[in-house]
Simulated scan of single mutants.
Amino acid sequence: MTAVAPKSAMRDLGGPVDEDVAVVIEDGEDIRELLAQVLTQGGFTVHTAADGAAGVELVREHDPIVVTIDVNMPGIDGFETARQIRSLTTAYLVMITARGDEIDTLVGLQTGADDYIVKPFRPRELRARIEAMMRRPRAIASTHPSPPPSAPQPPQGWGQGVSDHTGPHQVAPSPAHASSAPWAEDEPGVAPLVHRGLRLEPGARVVELDGAEVELTRSEFDILRMLLGSGRRVVSKLQLAGMLRGERGEPDHFLSEHDARAIEVHVANLRRKLGESPSEPRWIETVRGVGYRRTA
């Protein structure tokens, strides 16, 4: 399991830790200032660093709830920075980079990032993705017997009183449809989902395969839950992307190339951790051109 620093552990258990802290790790001064402004206007107390080593120290010192990480930085790159930060905290990690190749997305998500945004990006896209992450439970699969606390709410003012424009130093409000969290009906005691030796406990956010616990990221867990809970119905990539963004039902906008790639990477990682072959699936079938569904 991922090691968690004492302050992060206290936060996960509901201790008196300031939730509204963010760290921006970005070597480009203009982008660093823009990210800091977006998060500050959202109600976060923001600390910034120009390289990975300094960013890791800021995370160690301030224990933020959100961290943005640039991939191309002097010294240790963003991937190694993310690995070190993930060993310290369960904070939400957003990789922000000009590298949009599939392999870069794959590596970024494998290092523990919760989302991966390609430059150039719009401030409203960053805001919407952070809002969606913060509506999802922060605790990853754990052997702790008690269920994790509900997801923290965005800071006061996040998405309020901001401009509709998305210029270099202006912030747009988040989409209205992003107001509902996925699985908002979750409560302790929700029946587990069981399929072919795979057991998923929604309340405790624990996945077991043939009695052995499988460690999944938040996104992988949520995708697996949606697929197992949908029976034999096909779940589209658009629905999965919308679910990860915090939308309910079928999203009302198109599936971007980045969203589609991210879903494919998450599913590939999920299959790898479960030891499943795409050609002979035990749990997840691919429906070409549409999405995925649970095996019979």
Rank of each mutant, 00 (worst) to 15 (best):
E250M: 13
A191H: 12
V267L: 02
D210G: 01
G167K: 10
G161D: 15
A212F: 00
I223A: 08
P145L: 12
Q156L: 13
A172K: 10
L228P: 02
G229V: 10
A176R: 11
S219P: 01
V194Q: 12
E215I: 12
N269K: 04
S150C: 10
R272M: 13
G211Q: 03
H177V: 13
I263N: 00
R205F: 05
R248S: 14
E247Q: 05
L216Y: 02
R199P: 02
F254E: 15
L227E: 01
A191F: 11
A178D: 14
A262P: 00
R272I: 07
L240Y: 01
A191L: 10
P149D: 05
P149G: 13
A181F: 09
P149I: 14
A212H: 04
I263R: 00
G231W: 01
L193D: 04
E213R: 09
L240T: 01
A181K: 14
S163A: 13
P148K: 09
E213I: 03
P182Q: 01
R218H: 10
P149S: 11
R248Q: 12
K237E: 02
V214S: 05
P155S: 08
V162W: 09
H144S: 11
P149C: 08
G229S: 08
L227W: 02
H165V: 15
M243K: 12
V234R: 08
A141K: 01
P148C: 13
R271I: 08
R271F: 06
Q156V: 13
V234W: 09
H266Q: 06
V190T: 15
G211F: 03
T217H: 09
S174N: 13
P182R: 02
E257I: 02
P168V: 11
L238E: 01
P145F: 13
E185S: 08
